[in-house]
Nucleic acid binder design. Structure first.
Lengths: 220, 220
DNA sequence: ATTTTGTATATTGTATACAATCTTGGAGTC
DNA sequence: GACTCCAAGATTGTATACAATATACAAAAT
């Protein structure tokens, strides 16, 4: 998700990356106030790069900035979570169909690698890693689709999902099924069965969505 | 598109609004370099709010920022334009179905007003206004859909379209048809025929898309 | 007691100043 | 002539300082 080799080219980007990680991992909960001075102090920088990081995160929808009031980690309503998954069901199979026939040998190798690390993360119950790898796997599958805007939008949807799949992964049953489906998806990519992959994908996302909403219902 | 009653609550927001208008109207062409100092001088402010405005616009996809190199008005490839219209065809009918049954009397009155101003703009060949009103009309139709993320995404797609519909409107034939279709859409909204509106909408966007791509082919 | 109002404090927004990075042009080398 | 290298200028990135706005709490008024 973050290509800039672990140390960013700019302080603002580094702060943004750190905050993004903390929000996606849940270390910063929805509704948390993000004080510029506090963040600047914590990272040992001035408020300027902090402000720019917050601006960038607002663009990604991770925080909400109210003029003269400050930044807050954005919260999603149940309606929005449902909408996000509906959109994924609408858009991801389309990307799969457009991309899978164009995947290279290198892409397939990368998918294998991600899938392996994914399975490992599932086994170790490492939920933070799980979310990142899940998004990475999906995006790598779609990488070759000549649909640049769709890719950007789906990347955003996956990032939003990432914040919520963490709770979902509390369920041992669900994570096992997800891992199995991912393995099937990679196999279908390898054999070039784009249509079958698209169909499975829709079912896959639908299953995650159902789990998620049930869990949100239960947990409030 | 810009609720903040014409004078923004913050300098950065005002700069962003001004730049956005210039980009959407074509006053700032794709690929144009945006120098912080020059903008700061032109607006009589320091570079800080200019930087923050650019950050915001990057989040909207209107400019692209390269670290230590600066901001450039983003250009769209033919592939991306096609993708944007495909996405609109995919998403807008869905929003229409979800929203139209929930439209209030006030919403319908607003649609009438926008439609009237729209027809006027078409008659006067005012293309800058045309684009803004087109986006406003569509978004007002979808306003009541309980699909917050979809609304955000479609707003972005409409904004992108806005930059390109301006050239399309050079064609007298196309703009007349668009105006007529808009009138039909508003009528269908009033009578609550959501399904018919969704169908017409798909055809409407498809027609605009075809015109657009033909024009891009011709103009390069 | 409730509301209002004012003031002190906290927090964000912007300007100025400085540091880091990139670009440009020419001198020198092969 | 093409290339490398280096220095000066241009441009962006960040820190510090100040201004504007919002928040919290106490005093005053009804």
């Amino acid at each position: 998700m973050a290509q800039p080799g672990l140390k960013s080219r700019t302080v603002a980007a580094a702060i943004a990356e750190a905050l993004r990680t903390d929000i996606l991992s849940g270390a910063l909960a929805s509704g948390a106030q993000l004080r510029q001075d506090a963040l600047a102090g914590a990272y040992g920088v001035s408020r300027i790069p902090v402000r720019e990081a917050l601006l960038a995160l607002e663009g990604e929808g991770l925080v909400q900035i109210v003029p003269h009031k400050g930044a807050v980690v954005s919260a999603l309503s149940a309606a929005e979570v449902g909408d996000v998954f509906d959109l994924r069901i609408l858009l991801e199979p389309r990307l799969a169909r457009a991309s899978i026939p164009l995947l290279t040998r290198e892409d397939l190798a990368e998918l294998d690698a991600i899938q392996a690390r994914f399975a490992e993360a599932v086994a170790r119950q490492d939920r933070a890693l799980w979310g990142a790898l899940n998004a990475q796997l999906h995006l790598t599958m779609y990488r070759r689709a000549p649909l640049p805007r769709s890719l950007v939008l789906v990347a955003g949807l996956l990032q939003t999902s990432e914040r919520y799949t963490r709770m979902q992964m509390a369920r041992a049953a669900a994570d096992r099924r997800a891992a199995a489906e991912h393995a099937q998806l990679v196999a279908l990519c390898r054999t070039g069965k784009a249509e079958a992959a698209a169909t499975l994908l829709a079912a896959h996302i639908e299953a995650v969505r159902a789990d998620m909403l049930a869990l949100m219902q239960a947990a409030g």
